[in-house]
Amino acid sequence: MFEIFTQLADWLTYAVLGLSPDSKLGDAAHFFIEDVSKIFVLLLVMIYFIALLRASLNVEKVRDYLAGRHRGIGYLLGSGFGAITPFCSCSSIPVFLGFTSAGIPVGITMSFLLTSPLINEVAILLLMSLLGWKFTVLYVVIGMSVGIIGGFFLDSIRAERWLQSFAAKALAAGQNKTAPNQPKQEPTVLPFSQRHQFAKGETLEIFGRVWKWVIIGVGLGAALHGFVPDGWIETYLGDGQWWSVPAAVLLGIPLYSNATGVIPVMESLIINGLPIGTTLAFCMSTVAASFPEFILLKQVMQWRLLAIVFVMLLVSFSVVGWLFNAFSSFL
């Protein structure tokens, strides 16, 4: 089903641009054209259909559902909803406070917020088509585990001590209340025309945000593909170099991208021989840990908690990287 993109790239690279299939430049251009066209088409189609399905899911419903849940199942649910619920990252503070004032423990809220950038349905489908289902399952399991374990850890150190005082008060007030503080939303059945409107808006908005990342990601991949000598990455950044994992995590922090944009980079890094764990560590750090996000969180958390969350992410991504490098032979 994807041959059409190979044929398009063949035609554009060799016939229109007149590049030789044996040259480095021809190789890189072919890779770039094939991947960009394939990803753009996949994105447009997939975002639309998925948005149709999830048009009626929103953070308000998730909050009502999570409020009053037992902690044990709460982390799992929080993380699961984080993966599938659409929300703009600029809403993370209102979401945090909305959950908190409904009495949902900080750990469960953080399971939701940590998983949310790591996993989304577009990322999952892109991973499937570029890197295969095994890798996809693994990525989802790891992403959710980071969210679940992170949330559990934050509750076990009683992270709510280090909220800003107004947020702590809201949490206490929410937990003392037995009845839900807001009228439950009536179940909504959306007519198709509204779903279509939502899906169209989502497609245009998400595509408008990520297309440049795809170009950058694939461009980087094409450059690696065509110009970095085969084996270079394996020799210098391969399995034997334990430090390459934390280095990749640190490198990922100032870089910021969403999961959709970073996947083409993942693909090219893996094809070029970067170990799978190092790649994962780099990508998760790029997606989930960014300075702007942390500055925003400062509004609801004290420095101490912020630092704990930050270190927690660094450690967990490094552990993910090392584990995967150690077990990658079984994949």
Partner: peptide, 13 residues
Amino acid sequence: SPEVIMGFGVMST
């Protein structure tokens, strides 16, 4: 202000 936004019960901006 996040505090005021919370006061309105708003989660999606």
